[in-house]
């Protein structure tokens, strides 16, 4: 849900025009918007805390990377926390794997520590 919508205002709604003869009404309306935004923030914080508790670490890293404009987590997992423990060997290509690994290092090191 977009933040603006949660605060009771459509994103495309034009800015209100202030009339000098109605300052009290303007203050009341802005105060109501601040209250609505604070409530939306509290609700979103509760949601994020819930997601943090329930979602796995890999998904959180994925979401964080995407929001930061970085490529999603590479296909192979290069840190134990992210790999799937198995005794099966997976066929791979050296060039693709290394490029994938190197591209994963900067954001992973930031998030996994």
């Amino acid at each position: 849900m977009p933040w603006a919508e949660a605060a009771g205002r459509d994103e495309t709604e034009p800015e209100p025009i202030l009339h000098p003869e109605e300052p009290q009404r303007t203050i009341e309306r802005l105060a109501a918007r601040v209250t609505a935004l604070e409530a939306a923030l509290e609700q979103r914080s509760r949601e994020i805390l819930l997601i943090q508790r329930l979602a796995c670490k890999r998904d959180l890293v994925l979401i964080s990377r995407i929001r930061a404009g970085l490529p999603p987590l590479p296909h192979g997992a290069y840190e134990p926390a992210f790999w799937h423990e198995s005794t099966e060997l997976a066929q791979a290509d050296v060039k693709e794997t290394l490029e994938d690994l190197w591209s994963s290092l900067v954001p992973l090191s930031a998030y996994s520590r």
Binding site: G76, Y78, W83, T87, A90, A92, V94, T97, L98, S109
Partner: peptide, 22 residues
């Protein structure tokens, strides 16, 4: 020290030189 892993990946033997050279 930072450590990365390539876990249970099997590369074609003819490509392994590229891994070493990297």
């Amino acid at each position: 020290g930072k450590i990365s892993y390539l876990f249970n990946l099997e590369f074609p033997h003819h490509q392994l030189g590229s891994l070493y050279r990297s």
